[in-house]
């Protein structure tokens, strides 16, 4: 059926709760309220308060308790209401969720899927619009996923629940209800660690993910440039092969993300291309990203979040290099 991303994720949660009796959802307002974005709507009625748990307002409590649940045989799905509040649980995610398996040489594992809304463009308060994927990808141990469409969102979440790893599932707020897409009613998986080629092309590779996939598609369409668009879908582990194969074909690389420029995902991808495909390049690698400063209050969003104009200018520049 035609679904937006909220409905697609809700369906993935429903399927996961149905097929795994040890799956539990916990977080602030996830039960009676159905979550502030209604992603967990109706799940309390269907699965009851033992499996859909309204918790105290406590991010460390939510993530830390979920880690304990995961260690002891459950497969929790904690929700953090906004990514901007998740730093309180950063220690739990980096020091424990990411480390517990290797700390015990795979004796213990932390199978869980942490869901949280990310990215901006919807006129929110401060700390409701961050793009923190690089922080969580940096030290290793967490899988970091960010879908750009309802179909991938559902399949990636179901796949994440079939794995025995901690997966950070980043949901772009702006894409929750932006558009609908045909999404199968039943269960299906989208692989984690595998990028999607959103558009085939031969003269330019544009690597992006999340909200920026749509901005890039519009810019490419307007410019009528024969660009290949790669939607990463998974940030960590990076699908390096898909990136390098495309770069070898096109010889030009533009990386576009909504997160800040410095020390970001784009820097990592650019470094890998420089190390492994430098001599296939016809032009310097370019990045389009938010400026290296904190996400502003919404009046300034239009000057901060990369848009079609900014991507188009970058395409002009790289194609004339």
């Amino acid at each position: 059926m035609m679904s937006n991303m909220v409905a697609a994720i809700n369906s993935a949660l429903d399927i996961s709760m149905e097929e795994n009796k040890n799956a539990v959802i916990l977080g602030e307002d996830v039960g009676r309220d159905g979550g502030v974005f209604r992603v967990t709507e109706r799940l309390l009625d269907k699965y009851g308060p033992d499996r859909v748990i309204d918790t105290p307002l406590s991010e460390t409590g939510i993530i830390g308790t979920a880690i304990g649940m995961a260690l002891s045989g459950l497969h929790p799905i904690p929700e953090i209401q906004f990514a901007g509040f998740m730093y309180l649980a950063f220690d739990q995610l980096i020091s424990h969720a990411a480390r517990y398996r290797t700390r015990t040489r795979s004796t213990w594992s932390v199978p869980m899927v942490v869901r949280t809304p990310v990215s901006g463009g919807v006129k929110t308060l401060e700390h409701h619009a961050e793009s923190p994927e690089a922080y969580y990808s940096h030290s290793g141990g967490l899988m970091v996923v960010e879908p750009s469409n309802p179909y991938d969102a559902k399949g990636l979440l179901i796949k994440a629940m079939h794995m025995q790893d901690p997966v950070l599932f980043l949901e772009p707020t702006k894409l929750y209800r932006l558009f609908r897409q045909e999404v199968p009613d039943g269960s299906y998986e989208v692989p984690i660690g595998k990028a999607r080629i959103a558009r085939q092309g031969n003269v330019l590779t544009i690597i992006t993910y999340g909200t920026m996939v749509h901005v890039v598609e519009e810019a490419v369409s307007k410019k009528a440039v024969d660009a290949e668009i790669i939607d990463l879908r998974t940030i960590n582990p990076l699908d390096e092969k898909t990136v390098l194969d495309s770069v070898e074909k096109t010889g030009r690389v533009l990386i576009v993300h909504e997160a800040q420029l410095s020390f970001g995902v784009g820097a990592e991808i650019a470094a890998r291309i420089a190390e492994k495909a430098m001599f296939k390049l016809n032009a310097p690698i370019m990045r389009v990203a938010a400026p290296s400063l904190p996400y502003p209050f919404p009046g300034y969003e239009q000057f901060y979040v990369p848009n079609v104009r900014k991507v188009s200018m970058a395409i002009d520049k790289i194609m004339s290099a």
Partner: peptide, 18 residues
């Protein structure tokens, strides 16, 4: 890391109750 395991203990206790 001091006290960070206490929330794990709560989650483990939840599992055994569940």
């Amino acid at each position: 890391p001091v006290s960070t395991h206490l929330v794990h203990a709560v989650g483990i206790a939840f599992t055994h109750k569940y």
